[in-house]
Nucleic acid binder design. Structure first.
Length: 528
RNA sequence: GCGCCCGUAGCUCAACUGGACAGAGCAUCGGAUUUCUAAUCCGGUGGUUGCAGGUUCGACUCCUGCCGGGCGCACCA
């Protein structure tokens, strides 16, 4: 029943691949781990050209060193597969819905949305690279209470601009962009200063803000396949159906004039209101359309759904899942999956930046992209795991030196490209045919080839964990190996055999760096 | 009070999901090297992994209890 696990030891002297098999078996066999290991090693046989040496080490680990031929094979397959090297098919083309950003059209996107955009898009790409059929989806509310507040805020600014006394509503929107919207509305609707049509203002503001968000997302390099409107769930009665199903299943009850869902039956700490009492307006609470929306995802054939959200929404996780369970539709308990991320603080000159001119109270995605560029923003949002608070250091993102991880990684690619440029060699024409890896004698060459070989595994692990940070970690390791090799090993002007082999190494490195960067939505420049 | 997340070198973060001596970058100290981009390389200093227990051959990782920080706990979204 033992699972044989192979791992790459972090200590180089422990070989290329190791297993703890003997340690795991020792107890059941009532033998000393090292003796078990010796017995296993004695019984092993390998196909020719795979393993160079095997040894028992430490408490009972078995360490393998791979034959040089293996690295030659890596070089060959990278160059042959090119832009598709690192892809796998474990997803079998199964559909998966990745929902992210999902900002309501009440203002410009803030840094948290930016982190979601980077995360959601990278997770989508990781799933695509591992064989899933991904739909990127953006969900937004175009008709709720927040939208009403938005419309009232704009109306108040229109009135103020016309010299009439008006106050922003309680909890209204104060940003400078509201004033802009008011001006634009009046400019487009002569006579509106006197009496603006509230409904028309709402539609105008929603459309304008959605367009602005789309422009920002486009500048960020993120594209969605589906934009899903919350209002459509009401329009085609999906919200009503959801409530009716809960009631039919016997999970609802009336109390204090409101309709409740008995979520405590499913492990919640208290029951939840589904429909408010008459004196509170008699409307459904927000969580009903949330559940109806996920039923809809399920019915569209998404047996897997992933939501990237800020951790301030974590209380909805259980509620949505419980709401789905209470419907009895056979939807799995862990549906949908969530990737929750912690806060972002923007640092500049050693101090926290909190405000943006247009939005007023928060830093926008646009502010960041304008200041440091899309590549740096994307990379910085991905280089920490979602669970951790993220410090976005603007000064660091602007540095053109090794300290800046984006620069460091892109520079590695530019250097590889530089070899071909200076040598007048067509990179696309480089092959591994006739390359003898035995001429690659510098230790940094073996290290680089091993780092290249790990790419498919790094993609697979990052995809499985829904964690792009694993890939940025890998990318930095790879870039380090590439820089080191570049500085130790001359490519051009060496003997023909060495030059040919090293051109192949440079080409393979260029390919893997470009693939990894491309996956993360970051440019792979030819020069910096 | 309850729930979720976090706590690792002076700073920012890793550690392959329980493996071998906890590693990188920055900072700091000492050396080398004017190159297919000096936008470089090599080495040193720096740790009781917040604290206290437990589980096991083995714990940064899992469990329990504390301490500290963040975010949530509406008939708001």
């Amino acid at each position: 029943d033992v699972v044989v696990e192979l791992e790459t030891p972090r200590e180089k002297s422990h070989g290329d691949v190791a297993t703890n098999l003997a340690l795991v078996l020792a107890k059941a066999l009532k033998a000393k781990p090292r003796q078990v290991a010796e017995r296993i090693v004695a019984a092993l046989s390998f196909p020719p050209g795979l393993v160079a040496s095997v040894e028992v080490a430490g408490p009972g680990f078995i360490n393998f060193r791979l034959a040089a031929d293996q690295l030659a094979g890596t070089l060959q397959s990278i160059i042959a597969a090119g832009a598709s090297w690192g892809r796998s098919g474990v997803g079998n083309g199964a559909p998966v819905n990745v929902e992210f950003v999902s900002a309501n059209p009440t203002g410009p996107l803030h840094v948290g949305h930016g982190r979601q955009a980077a995360l959601g898009d990278a997770i989508s790409a990781l799933l695509e690279w591992t064989g899933w059929k991904v739909t990127r989806e953006f969900y937004y509310n175009d008709a709720g209470a927040q939208i009403a507040k938005l419309a009232e805020s704009v109306l108040a600014r229109i009135a103020q601009a016309a010299g009439r006394p008006a106050e922003l509503p309680e909890g209204g929107y104060h940003g400078e962009y509201i004033r802009e919207l008011a001006e634009r509305y009046v400019a487009a609707h002569p006579g509106a200063e006197a009496a603006a049509d509230a409904d028309a203002v709402r539609r105008f503001a929603v459309r304008a803000l959605r367009e602005e968000q789309d422009r920002d997302l486009q500048a960020f390099g993120v594209k969605f396949d589906v934009y899903f409107l919350e209002s459509s769930l009401y329009a085609d009665k999906r919200v009503d159906e959801t409530v009716a199903r809960w009631a039919a299943a016997g999970h609802t009850y009336e109390q204090d004039g409101a309709l409740w869902l008995r979520t405590t039956e499913f492990g919640d700490d208290k029951d939840r209101v589904v429909r408010r009492s008459a004196e509170k307006g008699g409307e459904y609470t927000y969580f009903v359309p949330d559940v109806a929306y996920h039923v809809n995802k399920w019915q569209r054939g998404f047996t897997r759904a992933i939501n990237a959200q800020g951790s301030d929404h974590h209380s909805t996780v259980n509620r949505v899942r419980i709401g789905l369970q209470a419907l009895g539709l056979g939807i799995p308990e862990g549906y949908p999956e969530y990737v929750l991320h912690q806060m972002v603080t923007v640092m500049k000159g050693g101090e926290e930046v909190r405000l943006s001119k247009r939005a007023g109270s928060y830093v926008t995605v646009r502010d960041l992209v304008d200041e440091v560029g899309r590549d740096a923003v994307r990379y910085f949002f991905l280089m920490r795991k979602a669970d951790s608070h993220l410090q976005f250091d603007i000064d660091l993102a602007l540095k053109r030196s090794e300290e800046n991880p984006v620069f460091y990684v892109q520079m590695a690619h530019a250097r590889m490209s530089g070899v071909f440029r200076v040598g007048g060699v067509d990179a696309a024409g480089v092959t591994a045919e006739g390359v003898d890896v035995a001429v690659l004698t510098d230790p940094s060459e073996a290290e680089l080839l091993k780092a290249l070989a790990r790419f498919p595994d790094a993609v697979a692990r990052a995809a499985e964990a829904l964690d792009p940070q694993r890939l940025t970690n890998y990318l930095e390791d790879l870039a380090r190996a590439a820089h080191l090799w570049y500085h130790r090993c001359r490519v051009l002007g060496e003997s023909p055999e060495v030059e040919r082999a090293r051109l192949a190494v440079a080409r393979a490195t260029q390919i893997v760096l470009a693939n990894a960067l491309g996956l993360l939505g970051i440019a792979a420049p030819e020069r910096m």
